[in-house]
Write a protein that binds this DNA or RNA. Structure first.
Lengths: 115, 115
DNA sequence: CAGAATCCAAAATGATACTG
DNA sequence: CAGTATCATTTTGGATTCTG
């Protein structure tokens, strides 16, 4: 019978924590994902609005990160069949569920960086 | 007189959040940093113990990430002037301050990954 | 307008052999 | 034991040009 604090169960707990961490970071850890997520907090935005709203992103990266967020279910993409084309992005409920976590990370970072 | 919810103040708030995020991720976002931090939660460890405790790290990466954590003040490194050499790593108070954040990230990730 | 495609640079990570 | 040094590879980000 194994003790509750045996090396094995410590490792199992840690493994579980680490899997969660690495999954979470793969979802929200991209270079521009937090920017996108924060920007969409205001409400749905067009592609061009996101570009203006996030100074410094290249088109390539903005699209890439949006596609990943979409694939992970945080962001919903709506294409309007018009000419010229219009595409809007919005947070899903799942996307909104990241906000407490995002805020906690931001708060820790803001509190502890120097300058 | 500027309205409280003007575009500018929204951007300032967001900018502040983003600075915090990016700083926090630069501190805890490395490939092995969470593993190290979680491992040291048990108490101080020798270099060789960390290696055993973190399957898959290369020596190069373990040292590199430990040095970064040390530079950022999360981890304290103690060298014992013995032969053979002995070096121990431990969390600082600042390092321990990451734990609520780390747990929240882990919890979100564990809750929302499939399978 | 909203991107796709292509090419390239830089950073992060890894494998492995060697050393005080 | 606790690293360092070196080289290879993978991942990530960016600039630019083109298109339905």
């Amino acid at each position: 019978m194994r003790k509750a604090n045996s090396t094995n169960s410590i490792n199992e707990t840690r493994l579980h924590l680490l899997c969660g961490m690495s999954h979470a970071l793969s979802v929200i850890g991209g270079r521009w994902k937090a920017s996108i997520l924060f920007s969409l907090t205001d409400g749905r935005k067009r592609y061009s609005e996101l570009r203006k709203d996030i100074p410094g992103v290249s088109e390539r990266m903005l699209v890439a990160q949006l596609r990943e967020l979409e694939a992970d279910g945080l962001v919903e993409r709506t294409v309007f069949p018009e000419v010229p084309p219009r595409v809007e992005y919005a947070l899903t409920d799942f996307g909104r569920s990241t906000q407490p976590m995002l805020r906690e990370i931001s708060a820790w970072g803001a509190k502890h960086r120097k300058g």
